[in-house]
């Protein structure tokens, strides 16, 4: 921290650091190791009481697994996202590129400028630039959908017209909740993206809509047909659809970088 170029204020802050009242770190190493050994079915080395780490996440996953077989539509929350399980049949909907429900087609640069969050794009080399970009508002802050055609490793499937779709929208706004309807037979895998809780929703039909502040469904037109990775980061919910595997979806997710300015 010693730096001969520090300003007087910076020197005062550096000096203040030693006086800040931060509690001493607890013995995390043994607690983490015991948790890992317990998860691996090994005997813990010794006894630090496990705190409530991941309690919410664990409950959400447990609830997810239980609710898959529920008779009525029931939801759980993931950040601003809610997963809804509904055993009833849904009418077929056309595929994404023909749907008005994803907004107006625009350019990446215009989308970057128009939304109220940092738009990010995948940097995996196989994808390159998106073929189509859509923006939609509401929700407040906007939603952006990037559509990629067939790419190496991301082939077109018989039931869809794109290789991969990435959607981003603000989802930490309480007035508007996005919801995901999931049919029976969907498999949900708990995973993580850069350490953040994430869900891989695979193996069934599901579609997407959002509610306004009054709870009314205002749009149910966006049909999604690919296996989907969902996670929330910095208040923005992300969905990667159409990746051929969970590993490929995570590779896309963890490659996201802020969209460069086209100026």
């Amino acid at each position: 921290m010693a730096d001969q170029h520090l300003s007087p204020l910076e020197m005062r802050l550096a000096e203040l650091s030693a006086f800040i009242d931060v509690p001493a770190a607890p013995p995390l190493a043994s607690a983490v190791a015991d948790r890992l050994r317990a998860e691996a079915g090994l005997r813990p080395s010794w006894r630090w009481p496990l705190p409530s780490v991941g309690r919410g996440t664990a409950l959400a996953v447990a609830a997810t697994l239980l609710l898959v077989s529920a008779v009525a539509a029931i939801g759980i929350a993931l950040g601003g996202l809610r997963l809804i399980f509904n055993p009833e049949s849904l009418p077929p909907l056309p595929s994404i590129p023909n749907q008005p429900g994803i907004g107006q087609q625009t350019t990446l640069d215009a989308a970057r400028s128009s939304v109220g969050f940092v738009l990010r794009v995948p940097t995996v080399s196989a994808l390159g630039e998106p073929d189509q970009v859509y923006v939609m508002e509401p929700p407040a802050g906007g939603a952006v959908t990037l559509v990629y055609g067939a790419r190496p490793g991301y082939p077109l499937q018989p039931d869809r017209m794109y290789g991969l779709v990435l959607t981003q929208f603000r989802a930490d706004i309480q007035a508007e909740n996005f919801e995901k309807l999931i049919m029976e037979g969907v498999r949900i895998t708990h995973t993580n993206v850069h350490g953040l809780p994430a869900y891989w929703v695979a193996g069934g039909e599901h579609f997407f809509f959002y509610r306004d502040a009054t709870g009314q469904i205002v749009n149910t037109t966006l049909r999604l047909v690919g296996d989907t990775l969902i996670w929330e980061e910095d208040g923005v919910t992300h969905r990667v659809e159409g990746a051929p595997s969970l590993q490929a979806a995570i590779a896309v997710a963890e490659s996201l970088e802020p969209a460069p300015s086209g100026e």
């Binding site: 931060v22 995390l28 983490v32 993580n192 850069h194 350490g195």
Partner: peptide, 28 residues
């Protein structure tokens, strides 16, 4: 832990966040 504390400003939340982070990092 210090980083987590500066974010959450609560000793117990910081402990849980740090431990959760280490467990997530192990999974990743």
């Amino acid at each position: 832990y210090r980083t987590a504390f500066l974010v959450v400003r609560d000793a117990e939340e910081a402990r849980d966040a740090a431990q959760e982070g280490f467990l997530s990092a192990h999974r990743a």
